[in-house]
Computed example of a mutant assay.
Amino acid sequence: MKKITQLLFILFPTLILSQVGIGTTNPDTELHIAGTNSTIRIESLNSSNNINNDGIKLAPVFVDGNGDLTLTPPNGTGGEPLNFLLDIPNFIPDNPHSLPFDSGVVINNNSTGETSVEGFIHSVTFTVPQTAVVEVKYGVTIVITDVDMTIPALSYITDNEARTIETFFCFDINNDGLDVIEKSKQFGQKAQFYASNWGGSLGYPYMNSQGYATLPPGTHSIHFFGIVNDSATSYTSVGFGGATDYLKMRVYN
């Protein structure tokens, strides 16, 4: 009889400890957090430790097959394992040349033998918290004329000659200056063909494109370039970003 009594005393504390209460001495479940203003904090999910939490908008929390809480949804759920690093409308200055119209950044291909001219458009600095695949989507407006629009002047193209306009971007890793190797890796390339005779118009069509790259953690910058191609005897002046543009960048785990 004595041995049975001792066994009951051993088991009784174990039964009591099977339920944990915070703010209450009478927990109703295995973990019971009482109080009308009670909250839970999991530091591994905060903006400092998880790339899918930008620290600005609320991040959805998922439950994986093991019951673990995570900001990355399980495969096949249809959720998006991403967050925006950048979402910048009109990211290129509309009138950097102080013209009486919004030209954007002008790149000229003159009529004295040039057939292809490349120029820098704009750059943006950003930070990646950990190694991740980065997706970039951008839209750049262009305006095209056959005279140097920085004079300032605009005119309809009427020579009926073909021209192509291209855009692309490069990444400056660690934002310490775009070197030759970084410049050689061109992402998000897009080209448009243009030709006009009488009846052409001056406007701001879009050039839209996207690209992907795997970047290390740290502060980097993205650099946009434009290329203007025409014949050796044609003058082509292209303004990049005179109207409303956009730049969106998001990361995947």
Rank of each mutant, 00 (worst) to 15 (best):
P81T: 08
I56L: 09
E114N: 14
A162M: 12
E161L: 12
G241F: 07
S98M: 05
L31N: 10
N52Y: 06
V117I: 15
D159Y: 05
F225R: 06
N108F: 01
G199L: 12
V238Y: 06
E30A: 15
E161P: 00
S111V: 02
D176E: 12
Y138R: 10
S18V: 12
N175C: 00
P216I: 03
N109P: 10
T164Q: 10
R163A: 01
F240T: 06
F120H: 09
G200S: 15
G177P: 08
S111W: 04
G79I: 11
P152H: 05
L85E: 00
D94V: 10
Y156D: 06
T29A: 13
F240I: 12
T127E: 12
I40F: 01
I56R: 04
K185C: 00
L215V: 08
Y204A: 00
K248L: 10
Q6I: 10
G35Y: 08
P74E: 07
H97L: 02
Y204G: 08
T233F: 05
S116R: 15
V106E: 01
N46V: 06
G239P: 01
P73S: 11
T39D: 09
P13F: 11
G76F: 01
K190F: 03
L69E: 00
V106P: 00
I51D: 12
Q6N: 14
H223Y: 11
P93R: 01
A132H: 00
K183T: 04
L71F: 00
L82V: 05
L178Q: 02
R250F: 11
H220N: 07
H122T: 03
N66Q: 05
F120P: 07
Y246R: 08
D28H: 02
G218N: 04
Y252M: 02
T233P: 03
G239A: 12
K248F: 06
L8N: 02
G239D: 04
T14L: 15
D87P: 03
G76T: 07
D68W: 07
S196T: 09
H32T: 15
E43T: 15
L58V: 11
L45K: 04
T36D: 13
N95G: 05
M1P: 11
N52T: 03
H97D: 11
F9K: 15
N90V: 01
G242Y: 10
T14Q: 09
N46E: 05
G177N: 01
W198N: 07
G203I: 00
